[in-house]
Design a protein around this nucleic acid. Structure first.
Length: 809
DNA sequence: AGCACGCCGACT
DNA sequence: GTCGGCGTGCTC
């Protein structure tokens, strides 16, 4: 039998199946989806068995046998194997990369070289210098570490000279982190042979006969513990048979958790509002009818989307099926997790980045072993290895964190729909501010739109006030806080209510802004604000390559208040303390939440009322639900608006709506103050009026004009190299090639320098494709990669293709 | 990716 | 004449 394997070598040339012989002992255990260790050239690598075949087209003489079995049972299901091929295709990634992304990091292979004194060398004769490292004849050291420890080059050369002579170096394939290992017992002998051997055993070797009988009945490998239980034997029995060469023992990784006891306390679901009921009904129908359907649930902040999810999951579980819930990493707060645990008890596995590698692995195992039926997690949880999936929910579906920004560059939404189709189960995309792509699809009837416009218990949406920071400046207020915001803060302090201050600052790029009139430097060709580059003292557009020198006076109003905009939370804290010295501020940003559990601790503190103000970035925008928050202040609503990204307005609207939603979620009325230099911008005005539809329509119009999603698909080709002319040359060639191959209706832009034209001494250029219909695009892009594969492996050239970019850098 | 093979310059 | 530089090509 032949195992067809994808090896763990991430290159173009090795991105295909390699055939290996399956040794008799592994015959039963090697099935598609298991990992194996195989010899590959002069070394050993891990690989995924994709298929098992009877014959191979490769010369029998060239075939090598599988060396080691890594899993007892396949960690990847048939469905996931199938899916990996689609991921590989659609994201233009390597098959190996697509497979690895589906497994927890702890299962990734780790390669090392073990060094020991060569068994044919007498230890006594080994030089003293070497004995310093190898303290005994049996000592096993890590070869690379040994070389590092050796210090100077001379000693290293000595060690290398002794390699394969006095010192034996063996390649070893292990896995990340420590894992439970299990000894597997198997046999090479056929049942007939075993019967003969059994008969030949002495009459008093009862246990040994029992063991052989076990293998005659069931020849597949069995964990030693299971075998001993089955035959009520002891370890010595197996050992005796192993010594006789009848049985073999093999160490393999297990992810079977012995704690089988599953008990989940069902907690009563909450009563639904009419709107919630109406939204839930079609979802339940799809669950009951067992058909695939993608629902877009648009519900304003506080409208009780989570309760709809929970009840849909309840129905799914009642049908004996499983559910995946995706939540943006940032809102995977303890509050959220508790909500699921309370409803589904021990039936929930949680996968998020705050868990250690081992903890994630354990949670993943609980899914694979069917000890849980609900998986809640961030992006990668979309690959939860369920086999009877009945429901997929993506909360805050507009979140950009659902797009993976390195290979394989998949979007969780696409994977969800793919899996939903496979299992014929509903997919629910939920958001207060759906992505334009999703809402447009819902309007076209591709998705089914469900709407909830009211907050639970008829709590009112907060009042939103927009303060014009240009006005503040004209009135002589040069601080970063508007008079209105300071007044509102003082009022809350008096009433002992809490405040959230949100500083929206993303990325490192600053934009150029006129503090008198709000003018922002934009690219004349792209309607996108320019990024100020300090190194060249220039303003650049990375879509089309346009560059200009920053104006010293405002081109619009001739004023001289041109500023490079951007400030941090620390600065805000300082400034605020100058104005209100007694104020208690809890600051949440990357600096204060770096340590494990800090995030939770700070939120707890705030929840207990130990701070008046929660000041933070991105991370406080979502999932906060504290009854005492009655004021939300947004310090710089523009910060995101002028990012050089066609989704800038969309993200601004989404984020501001999201932040606003933190205020007045319970009895006390909420107020939101948004400070901006662009008070008339539709994305800010529509936040004030809580009008998603209005925003959607305006933004759609602009997208249509500019040829962006959802009207056009975008693909971005990133080219980088240490050599600038070469980078430009290659990008140009690719661009020209695409122009010759793609339809005239498709727009191709480039070559253009990236927003950050050089990172780590690599020059970066890109080419952008905007298209409506290009059935052969994937094929053509494959050709492009193929053309340059040789050059990429032997030089610094790198070409990365993103078929659905969210980060335009 | 690694690692060996192999074909040209600076040394014993 | 040999050691070793890293360009080229293969890995079932």
């Amino acid at each position: 039998m032949i195992a067809r394997v994808i090896v763990d070598v991430t290159t173009n040339q090795t991105d295909r199946l390699f055939d290996y012989l399956i040794p008799a002992p592994f015959q039963a255990a090697i099935v598609p989806g298991v990992r194996v260790v195989v010899p590959f050239g002069p070394r050993k690598v891990q690989g995924f068995v994709i298929e098992v075949a009877k014959t191979s087209t490769i010369d029998a003489g060239k075939l090598k046998p599988v060396e080691q079995l890594v899993d007892i049972e396949p960690p990847l299901t048939r469905e996931l194997l199938l899916l990996s091929e689609k991921v590989k295709e659609s994201t233009l990634s390597f098959h190996n990369t697509a497979l690895k992304v589906m497994l927890p990091a702890a299962m990734r292979a780790k390669y090392k070289k073990e060094a020991m004194i060569h068994p044919e060398t007498a230890y006594e004769l080994v030089a003293k210098e070497i004995k310093r490292y190898f303290t005994s004849a049996e000592a096993v050291l890590d070869w690379d570490e040994l070389l590092k420890k050796a210090g100077d080059a001379e000693k290293r050369l000595l060690l290398k000279a002794l390699k394969e002579k006095t010192i034996l170096v063996l390649p070893k394939v292990g896995t990340q982190g420590k894992k439970k290992k299990q000894t597997l017992v198997h046999t090479v002998r056929s049942p007939e042979e075993l019967a003969q051997l059994k008969a030949a055993l002495p009459a008093n070797a009862v246990k040994q006969q029992d063991v052989l009988q076990h293998f005659i009945d069931r020849p597949e490998p069995v964990p030693v513990a299971e075998l001993l239980e089955a035959v009520r034997g002891s370890r010595s029995t197996v050992k005796a048979l192993a010594d006789k060469g009848i049985l073999c023992l093999e160490e393999a990784e297990v992810w079977r958790d012995p704690y089988e006891g599953r008990h989940y306390e069902r907690q009563a679901s909450l009563p639904l509002m009419e709107e919630q009921r109406q939204a839930l009904e079609p979802i339940l129908q799809a669950i009951d009818g067992e058909y695939h359907r993608t629902f877009l649930l648009r519900g304003v902040t506080g409208s009780g989307k989570t309760e709809v999810y929970l009840q849909a999951i309840e129905r799914t579980l009642a049908k004996g099926k499983e559910a995946i819930v995706l939540v943006p990493e940032i809102s995977l707060t303890p509050q959220m997790v508790t909500r699921f645990k309370e409803r589904f008890g021990s039936d929930v596995a949680v996968l998020h980045s705050a868990l250690s590698m081992g903890e994630k692995y354990d949670e993943w195992r609980r899914i694979r072993e069917k000890q849980v039926r609900v998986a809640v997690g961030a992006r990668s949880a979309i690959f939860a290895p369920f086999e009877n999936l009945g429901m997929i929910i993506i909360d805050e579906e507009h979140e950009t964190s659902y797009k993976q920004e390195d290979a394989p560059r998949y979007h969780a939404r696409d994977i969800a729909i793919e899996r939903g189709e496979y299992y014929q189960c509903p997919v629910v995309l939920g958001s207060a501010t759906p992505s334009l792509e999703s809402f447009a699809r819902a309007r076209k009837g591709v998705y089914e739109l469900l709407t909830m416009e009211k907050r639970v218990n008829d709590v009112q949406l907060p009042d939103v006030t927009i303060t014009d920071m240009r006005e503040e400046l004209r009135n002589g207020n040069r601080s970063m806080f508007s008079a209105a915001l300071i007044a509102a803060i003082k009022q809350r302090l008096q009433r002992q209510e809490q405040i959230v201050l949100f500083l929206n600052r993303r990325g490192y790029s600053t934009f150029v802004l006129c503090r008198d009139c709000g003018y922002v430097a934009e690219c004349p060709h792209c309607d996108i604000s320019l990024t100020y580059h300090r190194t060249t003292h220039s303003l650049q557009c990375h879509y089309c390559g346009y560059t200009e020198t920053p104006p010293t006076r405002c081109p619009s109003c001739e004023g001289e208040s041109i500023r490079f905009f951007g400030f941090g939370t620390q600065k805000v804290e300082e400034e605020l303390k100058k104005i209100l010295p007694d104020i208690q501020i809890i600051r949440m940003d990357v600096d204060t939440t770096r340590t494990k559990g800090a995030h939770e601790k700070l939120l707890d503190q705030f929840g207990r009322g130990e701070g008046d103000i929660l000041l933070g970035t991105q991370m406080i925008a979502k999932g906060l639900d504290f009854p005492n928050i009655t004021l939300v202040g947004v310090l710089a609503a523009d910060a995101m608006l002028h990012l050089q990204d066609f989704r800038a307005a969309e993200r601004t609207f989404q984020l501001l709506t999201q932040v606003s939603g933190r205020a007045g979620r319970h009895e006390k009325a909420g107020e939101v103050i948004i400070q901006t230099y662009s008070p008339d911008h539709y994305s800010i005005q529509d936040v004030k009026s809580h009008d998603y539809l209005s925003f959607f329509q305006k933004e759609m119009l602009l997208r249509k004009q500019a040829g962006y999603p959802p009207y056009f698909y975008v693909t971005l080709i990133h080219v980088s190299d240490t050599d600038l002319p070469k980078t430009i040359e290659v990008t140009k060639k690719i661009t020209n090639y695409l122009r010759s191959k793609l339809s005239p209706a498709t727009k191709i832009y480039g070559p253009a320098a990236s927003a950050i034209p050089r990172i780590k001494d690599r020059y970066r250029y890109q080419c952008m494709i905007k298209y409506k219909v290009e059935p052969y695009l994937t094929k053509i892009l494959h050709e492009v990669v193929q053309t340059y594969q040789g050059e990429m492996s032997r030089s610094d050239l790198s070409i990365v293709i993103d078929t659905n970019p969210y980060m335009m850098l």
